[in-house]
Design a protein around this nucleic acid. Structure first.
Lengths: 140, 140
DNA sequence: TTAAAACCATACTGGATTACTCAGGATTAG
DNA sequence: CTAATCCTGAGTAATCCAGTATGGTTTTAA
């Protein structure tokens, strides 16, 4: 049940952008330095965040990245799903997963399945209920 | 945020034992066959469950495995923790994890950290609140 | 006593995934 | 022009996972 480093870095970087929401575009190099993340690795992560519509970018000198929406409109679940795909404990209860992904053949009368669904929904509901703004408000 | 196959198989096997709680010791071969899991792999999993005190075993012809406690006394969190270690989204908020495991240097003033703690507790509370008996009651 | 059934332990392995790095191209402000 | 910045795709070393392989030991029915 571990989060990938992509997800972890992505959330940290998004918090960074949220903290500087009024400052315009923030260059990636600064985020990488402050957050102590490999810049090239962060570039990959930001490419995904951008394709997912969570951030927007400006190229060239004075360019950088900024949130695509205000901090109260972006939740943690969005970030993690964009970077890591559907949030689910096992493939067979994922939206994208088919029954072929099910390690137990039965699919239907599978008691465990009910558990995975509960767990999946529980995690998603929590992560969808926490926005970047919520996290900024936690500060001290 | 995926569960390991160990955890998944472990939960399935424990449900199997719970369903047959009154039948005495169940041989591993039967569980492996019914649940369609490699017997050798299941043996590894059961060794961990036994060391963790969740099941007990009898050797010899007529031997097998049984729950160490009644189904209402064993929760899903116990099973997964025995098989996969602490349930935590990132190492740095795990009981066993030190600050060295923290990918962000700051440990303290880390906004993301509060999030990981919330997520960790949320998941553990859910999984600790569901016993094997609860799952049996879900049937139909 | 013996052999089968079952548990027990450890080492190994092939494949997948992860977490990056490398190299270079495209864009734009000054 | 040029320096700063975004952008892209390929490559790679290491790790982890899932499952095998091998070879026990213990118990009990017959």
């Amino acid at each position: 049940m571990r989060l990938s480093s992509r997800g972890e870095y992505g959330v940290r970087a998004m918090i960074h952008l949220a903290l500087n929401y009024n400052e315009g575009f923030i260059p990636l190099s600064r985020i990488a330095a402050v957050e102590d993340i490999s810049q090239q690795y962060l570039e990959q992560i930001f490419a995904n965040l951008r394709r997912g519509g969570l951030i927007r970018s400006n190229r060239g000198v004075k360019g950088g990245y900024a949130l695509a929406s205000p901090p109260q409109a972006i939740c943690v679940g969005d970030i993690i799903r964009v970077l890591d795909g559907p949030i689910t404990p096992v493939n067979c209860v994922s939206d994208e997963g088919s029954d072929d992904d099910c390690r137990c053949g039965k699919s239907d009368d599978c008691l465990a399945r009910s558990l995975w669904i509960k767990l999946r929904d529980h995690i998603n509901q929590l992560l969808d209920g926490i926005t970047l703004q919520d996290m900024l408000n936690w500060k001290y």
